[in-house]
Structure formats: structure tokens, C-alpha cells
Computed example of a mutant assay.
Amino acid sequence: MKLAVLGSGSKGNSIFLETDNIKLLIDAGFSGKKIEEQLKNIGENICNIDGILITHEHGDHILGAGIISRKYDVPIYITKESYEAGILKLGKLNSQNLRFIEENFEVGASLIYPFDVMHDAERTVGFRIEESTGSKVAIATDLGYIDNTVREAFKNVDVIVLECNYDYNKLMECSYPWDLKARVKSRSGHLSNIDCARFLCEIYHKDLKKIYLAHMSKESNDPKLALDEVMEELSKNNIEIPVEIATQDRGTKLIDF
């Protein structure tokens, strides 16, 4: 299993994942050109993408999906609710390339387990993806609350990509209007640094290989602050694990797990 976060934040999100020789994008929230460039940076060709998994219909997750699907004949896996809410952003798709997510499904030999999360879109899902060899990754980049569904999805995975969106004090002090601040910190908004950190401690296990902190706000967070808060909580629980921040403007390296 190989993974690289091509970029993550309020201006665009996309993750590259290779599993069982199938190459996937989880979200495509940048322009097609930008995603093509980010893939080249990790030695991958956009022509080889086998599918795009969509978490929800917000523009920072689907901006380039329709373009890539049409240009490179790539299937899009999306819930019916998100498709209907985001149809104008996606544009016209080849019916053969529109795959509605209803339950667990397979792409190649890999199993994809979508799970619902609390976020203020028509419907938002995260993904647990299991390779036939046993490697597992769980991804949730937009969620306001950790419920039992999320806990179950993140159990015993090898790699975690989890939202670490805001610091509470910085959120309260930033220039956002009050209604936006209330939305961000609500159960259908985004995950704070401390809630992210506590959940990571809760679901840590000895075979966990790496954690990526995703969808970090530029207005109500700071990379050093977020990393310090997460690492402090992990340290309190005697947990040592590689943690990397997935930034908005620069992708991570492609790592083979």
C-alpha cells in the first residue's frame, strides 16, 4: 500500500492511494491540472488513475473530479446524495463512470468500506480501505464529532488520515463571523486539534505505522501549534508514532507502507 496526500485544506483536498496495484484518488478538490502536477511530483501519471472516491460534494473535494473523469475515462464513486447536491460542480459524466456508493464495495482486490460522518454537507463519508494483503488505511478529512461509527472504522488500521482543523482559542480570536465560528466548532463542523489528539490516543495500537493530520485551517490554526498539541497528548499516553501535517500547498512524499 502506497499513500501520499496531494494537498489538504479549505482550498482543496486530494489523496493518492495505491492498493493491490489499483491507483485511486480520494477526493479531487483541485483543478485537473493541479492534480496532474502533484501526481507528477510523486512519480505518478494521472492517466493511470483507476478511480476517484468522493467523500462529499463541497467544492474543495470535487472541483477536479468531473474534469478528470471525462478526460481520462475514470470512474467516480460517490453517494447519490452528494452527487445530486454537487451535480453542477461535477458536470456531465459518462454513465459508465458514475458509481453510486450504497454499501461496502470492491475496487480490484481491495475492499472499500464507506462510513458516514457528521459534517454539514448533504452527506459526508470517510473511507476505510483494506488491501488483500491485510494493510488498512482509514481516512476522514471533514467531521465535527467522533461517534462509534468513526471509532469502528479506525480500529486496527496501519495508516490514519484524520482532520485536525482548528485550535479553539485561535478560532475564537480569528476574523471569522460568529455564525461561521459556531458552524466550525459544532458537531457537524470540523474537528479541533485536541479532539483529534484524544481520538488518536484512543485508537492507537502497536502496529499503527503513521498518522497524517489533514484539513488544517489557515485562519484558526497553525501547523506548529497543531503538531505540538497532538504530540503532547500522545506523549502523555506514552505513544511514539510518526505524525505528519498534510499542508494545503505542498503534497507529502509517496510512502510505501
Rank of each mutant, 00 (worst) to 15 (best):
V243K: 08
N94Q: 04
P177S: 08
D256Y: 08
Y145A: 11
S8R: 13
P223Y: 07
K209L: 07
N221T: 12
L234Q: 04
N221M: 13
K23T: 10
Y113L: 14
V117G: 07
Y166L: 11
P242S: 06
A140F: 00
E37P: 02
A4R: 08
K236E: 03
N104P: 00
N94I: 04
I78P: 02
Q96E: 02
C47G: 06
K185R: 14
A85I: 06
K89Y: 01
L24F: 05
E233L: 07
Y145C: 13
L213V: 07
I26R: 03
S14E: 00
L143K: 07
N148T: 05
I139Y: 02
E44P: 04
L227N: 01
Y72G: 09
K224P: 00
L25V: 07
A153Q: 01
N238Q: 08
H215I: 10
K33Q: 13
G12S: 01
P114R: 10
F257G: 03
N97I: 03
K11L: 11
N193F: 09
V117D: 05
T252P: 09
D228T: 11
T247W: 00
E36Q: 13
D179I: 15
Q38P: 01
C164G: 04
I194E: 07
D195I: 10
D50V: 12
H56P: 05
G43K: 07
F115L: 09
K71W: 05
S188E: 09
S235W: 01
Y176S: 10
D27A: 12
V5Y: 01
F199D: 03
I139R: 04
G32M: 08
I68V: 04
S10L: 14
D147I: 09
A65N: 02
S186F: 05
A138F: 03
G251K: 11
N169I: 11
S175E: 08
N169L: 12
G32F: 01
V159A: 03
D73M: 08
V150M: 10
D50C: 12
L53V: 09
Y145F: 15
V150N: 01
H56M: 11
V159Q: 03
K2Q: 13
T252K: 10
R70W: 03
A109Q: 14
C174I: 04
N165D: 10
S69I: 09
L17A: 04
C47P: 00
Y83F: 15
F257M: 11
